[in-house]
């Protein structure tokens, strides 16, 4: 008679802490940042400022949710900033040529999906590394945006409904922020509670195992890039609606902000491990650091350095303290 040896059962609280260590760590870091800027500036903790942060940060949050799915499959999408710029410019050009904003928006969502699908096809069906495909995409798509706008910013005129998307409020809350929260909630539910979400995690965790149990592994990998493209289209439209113009120079450095938000949120670049909640907190942390440093009158040149250092430190702490080997209640 053989039995498996069993360890003493841990308390539920400790188990829960262990399972959620990554999210808890970023949540603590987020609260610490909030406290820091609240203490050191008069303006940070005001409704007006916080609403501004979420309005401006909505595109980052939306794309970071999609990027979480991409990174969960152990992939990466470096082209998100370029897709946002392309959609941003294209939308302005279409509206300048007499299309109404609803038609334009639908076409732009489709365009984002097509661009994402194209990248996904090269990655999953042609087996080219995601890093290479999206690096090329980053250059090509920004190039197209520059080419069609010839570098000019294109104004959007007389589209009240469209401007409301970027500038309006609903019950005092900016519309972009509401959209971003909706996207995050949908992403959260898909990741945790649907078969598709389970398939994304499985493919990222063990591609071969997913294939052997009959999951359409290639399609799943391809689909996350399509979702990323659609999220970028939403972000591009929101930026155009807020600024009232389309430009090929929109969203420069956007991909770094998005990837930093996802990684800060505890999602592993090796795939399989991550959470939308962590990503949301990561994105908010990045946004308030940027905002808070400006309010502290730190030189804008220093802001970039400080942001980078904070991200590096946070991720370092995350992997050292809360990495795979971490277990509460275990000494040594």
């Amino acid at each position: 008679m053989a039995n498996y040896t069993e360890r003493a059962k841990q308390s539920h609280a400790v188990e829960w802490l262990n399972d959620n260590a990554q999210v808890l760590s970023i949540a603590l870091f987020f609260i610490a940042c909030m406290g820091f800027f609240w203490a050191l500036t008069d303006t940070f903790m005001t409704t007006g400022n916080l609403l501004n942060v979420v309005r401006q940060g909505a595109p980052v949050l939306i794309v970071a949710v999609a990027m979480t799915f991409v990174i969960m499959t152990a992939g990466i999408d470096l082209a998100v900033g370029s897709i946002v710029a392309l959609i941003n410019a294209l939308a302005a050009i279409l509206m300048a040529n007499g299309f109404d904003w609803v038609t334009t928006s639908v076409m732009m969502l489709a365009a984002g999906a097509v661009v994402g699908l194209a990248q996904g096809w090269f990655i999953s069906f042609q087996g080219i590394a995601a890093f290479i495909v999206t690096l090329a995409g980053m250059s090509i798509l920004r190039g197209i945006a520059l080419y069609i706008t010839e570098g000019y910013s294109i104004p959007i005129k007389d589209q009240a409904g469209f401007f409301w998307l970027g500038r309006g409020t609903l019950a005092g809350i900016p519309v972009p922020a509401i959209l971003a929260v909706l996207v995050a909630i949908i992403g959260f539910i898909i990741m945790r509670n649907t078969r598709y979400g389970r398939q994304v995690v499985a493919v990222g965790s063990n591609l071969e195992a997913a294939r052997r149990v009959g999951m359409p592994a290639r399609w799943i990998v391809c689909s996350v890039y399509m979702m990323s493209g659609i999220a970028c289209a939403i972000a591009g439209l929101l930026i155009a609606a807020r600024l009232g113009s389309g430009s090929s120079n929109a969203a420069v450095g956007f991909e770094m902000q998005v990837i930093a938000a996802v990684v800060l949120g505890g999602t592993s670049l090796m795939g399989g491990r991550g959470s939308i909640l962590g990503t949301a907190l990561g994105a908010l942390t990045i946004l308030i650091i940027g905002n808070g440093l400006i309010l502290m009158h730190v030189s804008p040149f220093l802001t970039q350095i400080v942001t980078g250092v904070i991200i590096l430190l946070a991720v370092w702490m995350n992997t050292r303290l809360f990495g795979a080997g971490f277990k509460l209640g275990k000494k040594g």
Partner: peptide, 18 residues
């Protein structure tokens, strides 16, 4: 073994048959 490390025991038992 073809298990997914990041999915729980239940999820692995039902992998592909959720």
């Amino acid at each position: 073994l073809a298990l997914c490390d990041h999915i729980d025991v239940v999820g692995n038992l039902f992998l592909g048959r959720e």
